[in-house]
């Protein structure tokens, strides 16, 4: 890959934003399903594998880079103090986030990137007995600080289902000085796309940008077809680059195993249409594997050749 030869996290940080301008960026796909295939039990938190099963997590990152991903995402989705605390792991916040970042940073090829993954806390704001915006911000700042300190190139706030929590996470992540991608998860309802908390994309994109996101978008919940519709809805609403990461369709249970309805080649075809519709960054979410990313890389390559670069 052609990119600056400079190394070191500060230079790489601006490197990521520069890289966006040079044409589509490919994120990785799902992590959970790869870990489950290696024996992660139902209900088991994935983050301790950053220490106990380093080989498995490292292989997953490597497989995604080899498949053509420009960005891999650390195995720290549930790494906030609140989320780990729900599993009795609140005393391991530093250890598990640090280890998660290290694993990805160590296998990062030159010119590629590591995104420190920040997912929701599992709590909601604005309801009695739940957590406040300020508390959330502190909780996200802790995780973001650990990931940034371990040398990730950007922070990926993802799968947010409430705007207030998303704003807290983006604002805390941005305070590290790293670029922040912010994706929320929307479902298709009769009146349009909504988060679980009832936020519509229109309001979310502006608020996320104001909170300091460099990239905005959507991930999870939707299959590629609905995600394309959502992309077409949000493209005119923001001047920021858009990141979309759909699920591999809907999960079904067949003979005790989770199977997703959309296959890699078809998924990549949809992703091609997302690129044509103005997505600047693409990747996969639940049910997507290195094979999906490999096929998506081909789609990107075909467009790069066809247009002679962006």
């Amino acid at each position: 890959m052609a990119a600056g030869s400079a190394q070191g996290s500060e230079v790489m940080a601006t490197g990521f934003l520069k890289r966006i301008e040079q044409g589509p960026i490919l994120f990785d796909g799902g992590m959970g399903s790869l870990l489950i295939a290696q024996g992660l039990a139902s209900g088991e938190a994935p983050e301790p594998w950053n220490v106990d099963r380093r080989d498995v997590v490292r292989s997953a990152h490597r497989a995604y880079y080899e498949a053509g991903a420009d960005v891999v995402t650390t195995n720290t989705f549930g790494g906030t103090r609140l989320k780990l605390g729900a599993k009795g792991l609140s005393d391991r916040v530093v250890e598990l986030n640090r280890a998660g970042a290290d694993l990805a940073v160590l296998v990062r090829p030159e010119g590629k990137f590591v995104a420190g993954d920040i997912g929701p806390t599992g709590k909601v704001t604005g309801l009695p007995g739940e957590v406040s915006y300020e508390e959330l911000k502190e909780i996200f700042a802790e995780q973001a600080g650990i990931l940034a300190g371990a040398g990730v190139d950007l922070l990926a706030v993802e799968t947010m289902y409430g705007l207030e929590e998303a704003r807290a996470a983006v604002s805390a992540a941005g305070a590290t000085g790293l670029p922040v991608t912010a994706t929320m998860t929307f479902d298709r309802k009769p009146r349009g796309f909504f988060t679980l908390m009832g936020n519509q994309p229109e309001g979310c994109l502006a608020a996320l940008e104001e909170a300091g996101a460099s990239v905005v978008g959507a991930n999870c919940t939707l299959g590629p077809e609905d995600m394309l519709d959502l992309l077409e809805t949000i493209r005119p609403l923001t001047s920021l680059p858009i990141l979309v990461q759909a699920n591999a369709g809907q999960p079904e249970l067949k003979a005790g195993e989770t199977v997703y309805s959309v296959k890699a080649a078809d998924f990549a075809g949809w992703v091609g249409r997302m690129l044509d519709a103005g997505a600047g960054l693409v990747g996969g979410c639940c049910g997507t594997t290195p094979e999906f990313i490999r096929q998506m890389a081909l789609e990107i390559e075909a467009r790069r050749d066809g247009r002679g670069g962006h």
């Binding site: 909601v124 309801l127 409430g162 009146r191 679980l196 908390m197 009832g198």
Partner: peptide, 15 residues
């Protein structure tokens, strides 16, 4: 179920 109410309204109703 109709997508008119979201989590906050649902929880407040249950409360």
């Amino acid at each position: 179920e109709d997508g008119e109410y979201f989590l906050p309204e649902l929880v407040r109703g249950a409360e």
